[in-house]
Amino acid sequence: MRLTLRVWRQAGPEEAGAYEEYLVPDAEPEMSLLELLDVLNSRLIDDGQEPVAFDSDCREGICGACGVSVDGRPHGPTENTPSCHQRLDSYSEGDTLRIEPMRSAVFPVIRDLVVDRSALDQIAEAGAHVSLPAGAAPDADVTAQGHQEAESALDLAACIGCGACVAACPNGSANLFVGAKLGHLALMPVASRERGSRAREMVRAADQEFGSCSLYGECSTVCPAGIPLRAIAMVNRERLRAVFRRS
């Protein structure tokens, strides 16, 4: 399958970027998007050219490192699927793919398809942690938790921090990410001890760098972890709870 790739190339954060066009004549439908970039880079290296820089790690859909945008959609055409699992079977002979970094004001381009997503880390650092007393580890059955609460917490904890929700939002909101973190920890018995201060600090950090929620729900359709849209409601819920409670 012959595909034309229009790939964003940018030498550095302060450099001007532009699209460059490449032809890949032997793409296979079962290839992933990252494997397609691997094939392209192999040819560029053989020709003595600079390969396209892009992030990847586990390639199993659980690390969140691989995110790029394809034809303006974070990760690619298939909903709730990370870039490393986006297959080429949705394309046909002669199609053109526009591949670029995830676009958001808070995600500056480092090089080519690589962006700096440390703004998300700053939200987590602000409050997504748990303080425990030092000493021997408690027995596993000391703190009880209901099965449904545990399952709900695990569903929200599945967020991999890829930033697709931010790139998909017209306002650059991180509310799906923040809501997932706040909701997950609020459901955990030990972590709930710092629930109020966590909400105040994480929401404050998010408001400093990210936009407000657009209420359209674009974020949930691109989230590779399938974080439900109801997680957004956790932001205002935890914010209001923190106003009336000091714990």
Rank of each mutant, 00 (worst) to 15 (best):
S32V: 09
R195E: 03
N171W: 05
N171M: 14
D46H: 12
A27T: 11
S56N: 05
A105H: 04
S214H: 12
E209A: 15
G211T: 07
G172C: 09
A157H: 05
E60G: 08
V130R: 10
D38V: 07
P82I: 11
Q208Y: 06
L97R: 00
A191C: 01
L33S: 01
V115H: 09
G72Q: 03
P101V: 02
Q49C: 08
P138A: 15
L23F: 13
L37P: 09
P101H: 01
V68D: 01
M1K: 08
E201F: 03
E218C: 10
V166F: 05
L176P: 15
G12W: 11
G146V: 06
L44F: 14
A119H: 01
A174S: 15
V190G: 08
M234A: 10
A18E: 02
L187G: 00
F244Y: 15
R239G: 00
A168N: 06
A158R: 14
S69Y: 00
R230I: 09
S197W: 03
I45N: 13
M234I: 07
G94M: 09
A136V: 12
V70N: 01
D139C: 06
A199V: 07
H129I: 06
R2Y: 04
R98P: 00
S214L: 14
R204W: 12
G12P: 08
V115L: 04
V115C: 08
A231I: 04
V39Y: 10
M102G: 01
V24E: 14
A105F: 04
H75S: 06
R193G: 04
H147V: 11
R246K: 15
R2A: 10
S152C: 07
C223F: 14
V7W: 01
R111Q: 15
S131C: 10
E209P: 03
V7A: 00
G76Q: 07
P74Q: 07
P101T: 01
R2I: 05
D46E: 15
E28R: 15
Q86A: 11
A180L: 09
S192F: 03
I110E: 15
V190W: 00
F107P: 12
P189H: 09
G163Q: 11
T4A: 08
L37E: 06
D71I: 00
G48I: 11
V190H: 02
G146R: 05
R98G: 00
A11T: 04
V203W: 00
V106K: 09
R246V: 10
P108K: 07
D155P: 03
E50C: 09
G146E: 07
R111M: 13
C66V: 03
G226R: 13
E50N: 14
N175I: 08
A128S: 12
T4D: 04
V222W: 10
P224L: 12
C63F: 04
D57G: 11
E151S: 12
R245S: 13
G163D: 12
R98F: 01
P108L: 06
R73F: 02
P170T: 02
P82R: 10
A124S: 03
E14R: 14
P224R: 14
V178A: 13
A124G: 00
L88T: 11
A65S: 14
R195K: 04
L44G: 13
S214R: 13
I62A: 13
P29L: 04
H129V: 06
R87Y: 11
Q10C: 06
